[in-house]
Design a protein around this nucleic acid. Structure first.
Lengths: 233, 233
DNA sequence: ACCCATGTGTGATCCTCATCACCGCTCGAA
DNA sequence: TTCGAGCGGTGATGAGGATCACACATGGGT
């Protein structure tokens, strides 16, 4: 039990870079008030339109943030990585959750109640500032999303942009870069606002042009620059 | 000069509902640090991609917030009304301005330097919380924007949604509601992500269906419900 | 009164996807 | 093994808009 606690603290210390920015007292308060839980794949933390219960902090795993239209179609806003907050906007502004959050893999997630967050923020300007930074980043990312999705037109450009973005995050450094493809064509379509079939056809086209190779769930991008040339074409 | 100051304070007291939420000390600090200027129509407060100098608070007038794609096309994110903040996300998160802000009419706008905002936020949890609420609202509105623009498809649905949204803000209460149409077809197109010609054709169609009437720059919507029936169709 | 700039109306054409339809594959459960 | 569900490939078709190309209005400036 003792060793378990130690691991716990170590992991947080090393993984949660976000907490390092905060004064120790604030970080401790957060740790103290938050309730950390482990979720299986596919757990829904909150759904679009629900009134906010609190915020979630991703410790380990990955969470899919999506919105869905009246006709049932879905758009994936982004994948949320460890260290980031979920649901702040709703809690702070008081309106309903703006999207649906669902775990993509088994994940460890802390929960902080509505009232606790607001109380702590009022108490610690530093914390409030930190939270604001998080939302600001979300906002910026959403603006980029809008630009890419609406002002790009061609679906191939959107897909290329998505792949290049993945390279920056996931890929091993060496060239040709390769990475695991964790999403289905359907989900990729939901990330760039096109249909499953179009994604399939685009991948086929990219392969024909030697822009990508695929073996199993491993995606190889032999030449990043070629891919990038599709963007802003 | 004395009377001028009095008017100043009076107007802020009555128009800036946002400031009422803040403790008087904080509001005063804001007033003290901020620099208020009057801009003509078409003034660019900041442009997408610039590194942030500070935040702007709209006191009077209207500001257009837009982003523009690599091919030159423009998307108007929203019109910013008095009492709201501009450019917070960029200042707080440290990345570049996420959009371009341009006055749509002669406007009175306060400016608060980067460092002053951060200092005040650190100092006053209340202020930080207030700022966070503002960004949260922006974020929520941007998410709605994404949903409407990407998950709607038909251009007519988007236009109907825009008009109904305007009704909620601008229109006189009586039925048939009417309002001033302050934007060109081009700009409307930029708000819903379609071309100028499509907007023109849509308006023609709406008129034929008796959904709208137009005389000069005055738009009459005889039957709001009929318009709404186009949404989620 | 003129002119030019800016906004608007509308046809013709083309192209990109969404959609439907169907097939084959793989993998896990019964 | 067999079945079925989920995923992926690919053709055919059609629709919705972007785009181009005009012509017409409006209105401010000289």
């Amino acid at each position: 039990m003792a060793t378990h606690l130690v691991n716990h603290v170590q992991r947080f210390a090393s993984a949660d870079k976000t907490f390092c920015d905060l004064p120790p007292a604030v970080a401790e308060a957060l740790e103290h008030e938050a309730l950390t839980t482990t979720y299986p794949t596919g757990a829904v933390l909150f759904a679009e339109g629900q009134s906010p219960r609190g915020v979630f902090i991703v410790r380990r795993g990955r969470v899919k943030l999506s919105i869905c239209g009246s006709d049932g179609r879905t758009l994936i806003l982004r994948m949320v990585e460890p260290g980031l907050l979920l649901g702040v906007a709703a809690v702070v502004s008081g309106c309903t959750y703006e999207a649906t959050a669902e775990t993509q893999e088994p994940s460890e997630i802390s929960f902080l109640r509505h009232s606790d967050l607001l109380r702590l923020m009022r108490l610690h300007g530093e914390l409030a500032l930190w939270v604001t930074q998080q939302i600001s980043a979300d906002y910026a990312s959403t603006c980029r999303e809008i630009r890419d999705l609406i002002l790009s037109d061609s679906a191939s450009e959107k897909l290329a942009r998505l792949l290049v973005g993945w390279l920056d995050q996931n890929a091993e450094a060496r060239n040709p870069s390769q990475m695991k493809l964790a999403l289905t064509h359907e989900e990729i379509g939901q990330m760039i606002g096109t249909s499953r079939e179009t994604v399939s056809r685009l991948f086929a086209g990219f392969k024909k042009q030697r822009l990508i190779q695929q073996s199993g769930s491993t995606l190889v991008i032999p030449n990043r620059v070629a891919l990038e040339s599709l963007i802003t074409a």
